[in-house]
Design a protein around this nucleic acid. Structure first.
Lengths: 215, 215
DNA sequence: CCTAAATTAACCCTTTCGGGTTATCCACGA
DNA sequence: TCGTGGATAACCCGAAAGGGTTAATTTAGG
């Protein structure tokens, strides 16, 4: 018997899911929550095996709800059930601890299959979602040239910048004058087409970590 | 018709795969390579749709072979077929550009299914592998994580900060006073134990990029 | 219900940053 | 050989950032 929690603000859809679970042998609906607050309150007490989580909730987003639940219950398996197909939402949900990601247009039997798949140790998701997840691991084949127009010294200084050092500290680290650091930074700003150290760091980090592309 | 390349040093297994493909309608074996060198030479010329890649090869590893092939042919879909189940090998293969990851103990029909799955836009892998991939995205459940003590508003502002916006711009984006933004930022600095926006961004980025490094 | 935290906002003041400008030294290549 | 570009350094100045302080309102939780 697999116990399942539901978090879904849409009443019709929520009751549809309840009925689906009730009609499925081997599954039981532990609770059906209409809000993130309700979920954060009831689910830790009822300890279901799996949670079906909608992402579009009134106050807090389902992502935060997922994060809250998985932090309290590391063994809880959250399967996201949403209309959002964009990469950003997907990754935030996974980071929040979701273990599966389905679209609401999935057929009922696929949802049931997904719950069983979770129990078998899997991570249910559609083909397209899986492809996106895997693609996030691929190293960018051709690192953009933007950061490569930088000279050695400029890269070195940008690197220290990204570690949060002030110009003064960078100057000390490299045994340079603060003025020189400023000159290098100006060149970096020119080449990266930014106007502030924070923008430069954002740009630099964006190229140096394999995070999902924006949207 | 899907054309498939094979890279596998074990002769028996390689020929077994060849026969499997030959016996499968809609698939054709473009080439069967016994070494990474042979693969790097022949596959770019034959341009198969999919490559089944063993990871245990004589000289270079199949991971390097995968990296070489995917760099030359960005559209090539490499499905790893290996005995290695460890997380490190998995991640390296994915980073090298692999799009699927199967274990050699997979049944022949599953291998055929996986090739079709790739063509349908998916990323074929076993349940356990998928679980590992998804788990890599989970944020380390750091209870002491300073970033989690941040309030909703503070996280929101930090996020805009990390995108390179100035206080003034953040204020406009959120319809707030610059002073309020400054207050929130001060709290952020306190909680992250930093003294400047750049340090805060560095900290934030460090926690919010989902790289699976740790060689 | 009441308190703690969050959110909003303003003031003053010092430090840091970023743009503009100028200048010297050195290495590399046409 | 001369010029280009990198690295070094200094000046002025306005804009932005950051610290200290105070305080109103709202929200959340015990």
């Amino acid at each position: 018997m697999i116990t399942v929690g539901i978090v879904e603000d849409n009443t019709l859809f929520r009751e549809g899911l309840e009925r689906l679970l009730a009609d499925t042998p081997g599954m039981r609906c532990a609770c059906a929550c209409g809000s993130a607050e309700e979920a954060l309150h009831r689910i830790p007490r009822l300890q279901p095996d799996v949670v079906l989580m909608d992402l579009h909730l009134p106050n807090r987003s389902g992502i935060e709800c997922t994060a809250g639940l998985t932090q309290q219950m590391p063994n809880l398996k959250v399967v996201v059930l949403t209309i959002y197909e964009d990469t950003m939402t997907l990754f935030k949900a996974l980071q929040a601890g979701a273990i599966g990601y389905l679209l609401k247009r999935a057929k009922p039997e696929h949802i049931v299959d997904a719950i069983r798949e979770v129990r078998r140790g899997g991570a249910p998701m559609t083909s397209e979602i899986a492809r996106k997840v895997v693609a996030a691991f691929h190293q960018p084949i051709a690192p953009r040239s933007a950061a490569h127009n930088l000279s050695r010294r400029e890269r070195e200084i940008l690197d220290l910048l990204a570690r949060g050092f002030a110009n003064k500290e960078i100057a000390q680290h490299l045994s340079l004058s603060v003025e020189t650091v400023r000159v290098h930074l100006r060149h970096v700003y020119d080449k990266l087409h930014v106007r502030s150290r924070t923008q430069a760091v954002a740009e630099f980090m964006g190229l140096h970590n394999n995070r999902p592309p924006e949207n």
